[in-house]
């Protein structure tokens, strides 16, 4: 057991992946620049330009070449610096990577991992978005967004071993988060949620960076005698609701916390699943905590009102429990 940051855990997973000769990394500024968030720092020096491929600013091209190479037997890791730029590659991701397996009758697949980042820090409208729901909407993609260093490493292993296209969503504000990482070559499977904290009064269903804020909220509320159970979904497609539903049947109350817009966003799907399968256990309407639905403002005072904060999570929990 070692204490590692998310960045270090990912670095270990990537170095490990590079042991397979079929693996190469393709993306913008992953090599000469030294990597935007430091994850692939030193990789160019270690593995050379053939396998650490600094790509032109051409997102469709990056995903397109990676998809073709994956079809033909390579194991590419495509890095899209910020998820906002992935929009230029949506054609390749949705019309090709996600479709090829079934459209050609299951004769070949696309073993591709696309790493990308959500995040915000006064980057304003075009650089602070989340498209989690847009990826998770697509049958044919597998979409993961782990929250802890251990899950980052374990799920990256699962993603690399998977024969289907996996969208691996990281978060710019999570690279420094520390946590225990088990030794050995453990794998955290895609499509399995996990209990992040036990409690008996209310269930918070969440994933990615919001797991950490929800745990902080739970900590604060514990001081008031409210025991919050936190479920980390870890994978958005396929969505494993089993643990969340089990918890909901016990607590009869739920809050869904996701760092994206509310309307048509991931929380809409998650809450619907709770209603559909847990209606008989419901004691109060489910509350959702999300980005406020505006293009992200630059000004700090405004930005802080758009993003999810621990305070907003606490308030939502109290509202559901009728304890303001």
């Amino acid at each position: 057991m070692a204490i590692l940051t998310v960045r270090e855990a990912l670095q270990q997973a990537l170095h490990e992946a590079m042991q397979d000769e079929r693996v190469f990394i393709i993306g913008e500024d992953i090599g000469h620049y030294g990597s935007t968030y430091g994850v692939t720092a030193g990789f160019l020096e270690k593995y050379g330009p053939e396998r650490i491929r600094d790509a032109p600013i051409a997102e469709a091209g990056i995903l397109g070449l990676a998809t073709g190479a994956a079809m033909a037997g390579m194991r590419p890791i495509a890095e899209i610096m910020s998820v906002n730029f992935s929009l230029l590659a949506f054609d390749i991701i949705i019309n090709h990577a996600a479709k090829i397996y079934s459209m050609f009758g299951g004769k070949f697949s696309v073993p591709l991992v696309m790493r990308t980042t959500n995040g915000w820090t006064q980057l304003s409208a075009t650089h602070s978005q989340s498209f989690d729901a847009m990826f998770a909407y697509i049958p044919g993609l597998k979409v993961v967004a782990p929250a802890t260093p251990a899950d980052m490493k374990g799920m990256f292993r699962a993603a690399m071993a998977d024969p289907d296209p996996v969208i691996f969503i990281e978060h710019t504000l999570m690279y420094g988060i520390k946590g225990e990482v088990p030794d050995g070559d453990y794998v955290v499977p895609i499509g399995k949620s996990v209990l992040a904290r036990e409690g008996r009064h209310i269930t918070v269903v969440t994933y990615s960076r919001m797991v950490h804020l929800s745990l902080q909220a739970a900590e604060l509320l514990a001081q008031e005698g409210i025991e919050v159970e936190v479920v980390d979904l870890r994978t958005l497609r396929p969505l494993d609701m089993s643990i969340a539903l089990e918890s909901f049947k016990k607590t009869n109350h739920a809050v869904v916390v996701t760092e994206d817009w509310q309307s048509y966003g991931t929380s809409a799907e998650i809450a619907t699943r709770l209603y559909e399968a847990g209606f008989d256990y419901l004691d109060a309407p489910i509350q959702r905590v999300n980005f406020r639905e505006v293009p992200m403002p630059y000004a700090k005072n405004l930005e802080m009102q758009v993003v999810v904060t621990t305070e907003r999570i606490v308030a939502a929990i109290k509202k559901v429990l009728n304890r303001s």
Partner: peptide, 30 residues
């Protein structure tokens, strides 16, 4: 499509399969 003949198929979104072709060429090269 028929991959036993390396015939990777017909694609219906105009222009984008050129990038997949580059990707297979990258595999040939590497």
């Amino acid at each position: 499509a028929d991959i036993t003949k390396n015939f990777w198929g017909g694609y219906a979104i105009v222009g984008s399969h050129l990038l997949l072709a580059d990707g297979v060429a990258l595999q040939c090269q590497m």
